[in-house]
Simulated scan of single mutants.
Amino acid sequence: MDSIDLEVLKAADSWLDAGHACELVTVVQTWGSSPRPVGAMMVLREDGLVIGSVSGGCIEDDLMARVRNTGRKQETPELLTYGISAEEAFRFGLPCGGTIKLVIEPLSGKSRIKQLLAHVMHHNLVMRQLDLVSGAVRLAPAQAGAVLDLTLSVLTTIHGPRWRLLIIGAGQLSQFLAQIATGLDYQVVVCDPREEYRLAWQVAGVDVIHAMPDDLVLEMKMDSRTAVVALTHDPKLDDLALMEALKSEAFYVGAIGSRINNARRRERLKEFDLSDAQLQRLHGPIGLYIGSKTPAEIAISILAELTAIRNGVALPDKMSVASAKDEIELPLWSPAGREVVPTQLN
């Protein structure tokens, strides 16, 4: 599963190769509420075909109509603002009087889309600087945490995976997790020293590294944009890796397992050189409680928790798997003092 940005770049590259005229549209500023964040992109072909999104529908419709009715008149980038008036905000579906500013860039060979796509496909984080006067483009390595920047003459955008996810174990759940995480702009690394699991791996674009997980955690130099998820159920593989990850700056460290197994894991980890604060960082059982049963559902549950944490959302404790199941399994008592077994919730 490609991220939205990667889909846009692939479409732009394909259309240019086929001789189509197309434009790259980027959200560069927003005020008030806006459906899509700064940095969102879409590519628009001369016949009105579009890949990506900058508003969720209404602005795309207007841009497509403009291309169909008037053709491409701009040869250099232009700035376009929607939603200044209350009438426009209502027309284009911008809630609460929101305003959105776009850069519309006619694409050509000098846009360097093919080179940018090659870097992103190799999981490189790239800075693209667009000269708003001439349309010339410069590419350079980007630093982790870099963000879009707009000046009077230059638009700087960041492309490539903004986050890293290390998955320990290459089982079926890991395959679903890797697929969805790739679409969420993670650079996914899967580690499993067990040959039988590596041979069964089937996720395109995500390879399995043959290494001991704790060694790989140290090698990757975990930073605040990295998450670690242990999925093997094997203490020999998970525990040492979790220990090293908990000592790092990783924004999320978690392990799959029941409440009982996670309690036992915490007891084992106490024997290592970890502080109470470091142990408190361990998530387990991982994920948000959504009644997940299948590997695909569990992967969604895990990534929902990662998304909330990386977005700085404080989740209530009752949304965790452990708390939700504790509450579900508490016995209920009738007014007569009889215990009533609660219905299992999914």
Rank of each mutant, 00 (worst) to 15 (best):
K110S: 15
Y82H: 10
M121Q: 15
R68L: 15
Q74E: 11
D131I: 08
T70L: 07
L117N: 09
G97T: 07
L152S: 13
G135E: 06
L79T: 14
R72P: 02
H122K: 11
P77K: 04
S111C: 02
T76F: 02
A144T: 15
Y82R: 14
S85H: 04
I84T: 08
V133Q: 15
A142Y: 03
P95E: 01
Q143G: 14
D149Y: 00
S111P: 04
V120C: 12
S134R: 12
K110H: 13
E75P: 04
T70K: 09
F90T: 06
E87F: 01
L102G: 13
L107P: 03
A118C: 10
K110V: 12
I100V: 15
Y82T: 11
Y82V: 13
S108C: 13
P77D: 06
A146T: 03
L125H: 09
L148H: 07
R112G: 01
R72F: 13
F92W: 13
A86T: 06
V147W: 01
D149H: 08
V126T: 15
L155Q: 05
L139I: 11
V147H: 10
L130W: 00
A89L: 02
N124G: 00
N69P: 02
F90L: 08
L107K: 03
A144S: 14
Q115H: 08
G145C: 11
A118L: 10
L132D: 10
V103Q: 06
I100W: 00
V133T: 15
V120N: 04
A144M: 09
A144R: 15
T156S: 15
E75W: 06
S134G: 13
H119P: 01
S153H: 10
G97W: 02
T76E: 05
L94Q: 08
T151Q: 01
G98H: 05
K101Q: 12
R138I: 14
I84P: 02
L107M: 06
Q129N: 12
E75N: 14
M127F: 00
L102E: 13
I113N: 02
A86R: 06
E78T: 14
R138Q: 15
I100S: 03
L130G: 03
R128D: 04
N69A: 14
G135N: 11
I100M: 10
V133G: 08
D131V: 10
S111L: 04
P77A: 02
L155A: 10
F92T: 05
A144I: 12
V133C: 12
V126G: 00
H119T: 07
T151P: 07
S85R: 05
L125I: 10
A89S: 15
R68G: 00
D131A: 10
T99D: 02
S134W: 05
S85P: 07
G71T: 02
L155C: 08
S108T: 15
L130Q: 03
A89Q: 04
S108R: 09
H119E: 08
F92A: 07
L155T: 09
P95Q: 03
C96S: 08
A140Y: 01
L107H: 02
G109I: 06
L125R: 13
N124I: 00
A86V: 03
T151H: 04
L148R: 04
R112L: 12
G93I: 07
H119F: 04
V137K: 02
Q143M: 12
G145S: 07
Q143D: 11
E105A: 05
E88M: 06
M127L: 03
L150N: 01
